[in-house]
Each structure stands twice: as C-alpha cells, then as structure tokens.
Simulated scan of single mutants.
Amino acid sequence: MEAQLMELARTAGSAVVTLMATDAWERTRDGVVALWRRASPSRADGVEGELDATRDDLLAAREDGDDLTEQELREEWVGRLRRLLREQPEVAEQLRLVLAEFDPDSRETRAVTVQMRAEASGRGRVYQAGRDQHIAER
C-alpha cells in the first residue's frame, strides 16, 4: 500500500477517535459514515454503530484514566481506514475532505468564493452572510 495512504489512515484513525470526545463528534461521525456509504454502502450502518460503540468505550476509558484502551481504539480505527483505503484508494480525497473540516489550519487557508444577489422592495430587508450571521432585532 502506498505510503501516503498509510499515513492518511494513521492520521484519520487518530483524528476520528480524538474527535469522539469533542463537540464535533456528530459531524465527524456523519462524515465518516457518509464516506463508507459511498465506498461500501452495505457496511455503512454497521460502521455507524461501531463508531458509536467506540465513542462509548473511549469516554469510559478516559473516565477511568485507561490510556491503553484509548490507544487500542485509535489503532482499531487506523486499521479499519487502512483496509478501506487499500480496497478503494479513490476514497482518499473524500477522507481528506472529512479531516479538513476539523483542521483549523485547513479552514483558514481554504479559499471560498461566495456570490450573493438579493433584492428587497417596499419595506423589505435582506440579510446575507458568507459565514455565520446573528441578528437580534426587537
């Protein structure tokens, strides 16, 4: 297996397990499951259940201070992703995109083009934003 794909599997497996204990968990799970749905639809539901079970194990291990179990969970997901990439190397770019969503450095350097057009008439208002928008009117 290509060295780049091995490194991607190692990075992704570790990142997925790390993100299990964060507020980004649901988005991470959804991204990983979507990846499996594209690559191997018949296994996607099982992967979703396995991700949730791993998260439960991770949270319990952290509560107990069990670093060995946490490392084993990381290695387990590195192996799963390595096998997926070995079987279907074309999903590597999709996996990179899933990871980039949670990488602060990647988000800041990613170029985004937003084009908006709006019209308001009468007493209408238009609110547009290329990112977050918070409006508090009374």
Rank of each mutant, 00 (worst) to 15 (best):
41 P>C: 07
53 A>T: 10
89 P>M: 10
4 Q>R: 14
138 R>Q: 11
21 A>R: 00
112 V>H: 05
133 Q>L: 15
113 T>E: 12
26 E>V: 06
51 L>E: 01
79 G>F: 05
64 D>L: 15
11 T>P: 00
42 S>L: 10
127 Y>Q: 07
58 L>P: 00
108 E>P: 00
107 R>M: 05
52 D>V: 13
82 R>H: 15
120 A>T: 13
94 Q>T: 11
4 Q>T: 07
65 G>T: 04
49 G>Y: 03
114 V>G: 00
119 E>C: 00
22 T>D: 05
111 A>Q: 09
4 Q>Y: 08
113 T>A: 10
99 L>P: 15
117 R>T: 10
122 G>D: 09
80 R>V: 07
38 R>M: 06
50 E>P: 02
132 D>E: 14
86 R>E: 14
95 L>F: 05
99 L>A: 10
77 W>S: 02
122 G>M: 04
129 A>W: 08
54 T>H: 01
120 A>S: 13
75 E>T: 07
51 L>T: 02
101 E>G: 12
106 S>L: 04
118 A>F: 08
87 E>Q: 12
131 R>S: 15
62 R>W: 02
28 T>I: 01
46 G>H: 08
93 E>T: 09
109 T>H: 12
92 A>L: 09
49 G>H: 09
123 R>C: 01
63 E>F: 05
61 A>P: 01
59 L>S: 01
54 T>Y: 00
131 R>A: 15
8 L>I: 04
84 L>N: 08
30 D>Y: 03
38 R>G: 13
49 G>K: 10
69 T>L: 15
94 Q>F: 02
83 R>Y: 05
78 V>T: 10
120 A>K: 08
123 R>M: 04
34 A>L: 07
34 A>Q: 12
5 L>P: 04
105 D>E: 13
135 I>H: 05
7 E>A: 11
64 D>V: 02
103 D>V: 03
130 G>M: 05
97 L>A: 14
115 Q>A: 06
35 L>I: 06
10 R>E: 13
32 V>Y: 06
6 M>P: 00
22 T>W: 04
110 R>K: 12
87 E>A: 13
99 L>W: 13
39 A>I: 04
56 D>K: 08
59 L>W: 01
91 V>Q: 08
101 E>C: 01
10 R>G: 00
69 T>C: 00
51 L>H: 03
132 D>R: 14
122 G>E: 08
32 V>L: 07
97 L>S: 14
105 D>A: 14
47 V>P: 05
120 A>R: 13
124 G>N: 06
17 V>T: 05
18 T>S: 11
79 G>M: 03
